[in-house]
């Protein structure tokens, strides 16, 4: 019986969703950023989630009693990639970032898209938080057997 494995898995979900929310708010904050250290406008960032086999830490303990956790997978952010959409060009000849024709490249960020992504991340975070509550109450009940 691996009750603490549940906490780890749900925790990994919470971490991944928080990272996703972080990337989304960074996109929103930089919706008008035309200058970056890499040069050019800010590029919209996207997270890539990946399922990951639970690291079998308690193997030694399990060998002497308790079931192996079968096939449960946690989640992690594998990488953060830049969106390949071309930047939006606006005619602003006075802007120091304007090119020779007077166009400024702005990040191609759609606030509606970002807001829905943020809501998705928040809901998924809540979901994992309630799974943590469930795991916690199961652990508490197991402790109550001793009373």
């Amino acid at each position: 019986m691996n009750l603490f494995g549940m906490l780890e898995i749900s925790g990994s979900g919470m971490t991944a969703e928080r990272q996703r929310a972080q990337v989304v708010v960074s996109n929103m904050a930089n919706a008008q950023t035309t200058h970056t250290p890499e040069g050019g406008p800010y590029k919209r960032q996207l997270v890539v989630f990946r399922a990951q086999r639970q690291p079998q830490f308690p193997v030694i303990m399990l060998a002497s009693g308790g079931a192996r956790s079968g096939g449960a997978e946690s989640v992690r952010v594998q990488q953060v990639v830049a969106d390949k959409k071309p930047p939006l060009l606006r005619y602003e000849p006075g802007n120091p970032d304007a090119d020779t024709k007077g166009y400024v490249a702005y990040p191609n960020i759609d606030p509606v898209e970002e807001m829905t992504d943020l809501l998705g991340a928040v809901r998924a975070y809540e979901l994992n938080a309630s799974a943590v509550q469930a795991a916690k109450s199961m652990i508490q009940q197991s402790l109550d057997i001793l009373k």
Partner: peptide, 22 residues
């Protein structure tokens, strides 16, 4: 019974954690 229940809950939490994994 408790062992199997715990294993199953672990899988459910795993499914929930991966709700956004392509």
């Amino acid at each position: 019974f408790l062992d199997v229940s715990a294993s199953r809950t672990e899988l459910i939490t795993s499914n929930l954690a991966n709700i956004d994994t392509p």
